[in-house]
Design a protein around this nucleic acid. Sequence first.
DNA 1: TCGAACCCTCACATTGATGTGAAGGTCTAC
DNA 2: GTAGACCTTCACATCAATGTGAGGGTTCGA
Lengths: 124, 124
Amino acid sequence: MRIGELAERTGTSRRLLRYYEEQGLIIASRGPNGYRDYDEPTVDRVIQVRGLLDAGLPTRIIKQILPCLDKPRTIYFPDATPEMIATLEAERDRMTRRAECLLRNRDAIGEYLAAVREYDPAVR
Amino acid sequence: MRIGELAERTGTSRRLLRYYEEQGLIIASRGPNGYRDYDEPTVDRVIQVRGLLDAGLPTRIIKQILPCLDKPRTIYFPDATPEMIATLEAERDRMTRRAECLLRNRDAIGEYLAAVREYDPAVR
DNA sequence: TCGAACCCTCACATTGATGTGAAGGTCTAC
DNA sequence: GTAGACCTTCACATCAATGTGAGGGTTCGA
């Protein structure tokens, strides 16, 4: 598919799709006219990239962890250098802390909302 | 305490502490000489702000949700407008999705690491 | 009283994720 | 063949979170 369709299906601007490609997060083959040509799995990949970006990860990190996240579990060991492993472990731990922080504060918001509703049931 | 001590205790640059104040995330009283003067709870607040920022929330949102997160559960209802409630609900849901995305991908990284270790136990 | 180590404000620089638009090539339908 | 809707690259703009430094005041200990 071309960039317009991918943009529409992922809710992402064309500009950003080109940016993600520039950052090595997605790849596109090119037609004889120079147009980008995306395959079907790219849709999911873009959605995943968006999710990770929204979760606060920079493209630099996303690029590093993406190879581990491919669906058909095709683990690529050749490039599993010790540095890579260490990076992944560190990032995994950071993600855990991030998620905990989010959930903790989310729960606090939930408690607040519950208290407000009890105080004034008209709110909702 | 003054800004230097707060910076050291929270691992945050003075510049950023002033920025957070400018954004309304923390408050400081002023000494007669104009120096900022922080109280003890500000330490925790700064750490919490850092956590939320790291989790990907913008200062704009953090500022909105902070009042709900105060420790002594002092719920302030006066400003609980319907818009505010809606914002909080939306943000709470976004935080849930963010956390889910993080945990999902974190687990994928974990699986990858486990697979790598099985393949080559020398890696740790 | 002097220097070191603080503090202040102001302002410009940078980085990453984006938006926007210009200048131009391609494809399709009429 | 021409218009409209695509696509290309390039470049400049913006926004939030930061860094950095200038120019200047305050505090404190030797």
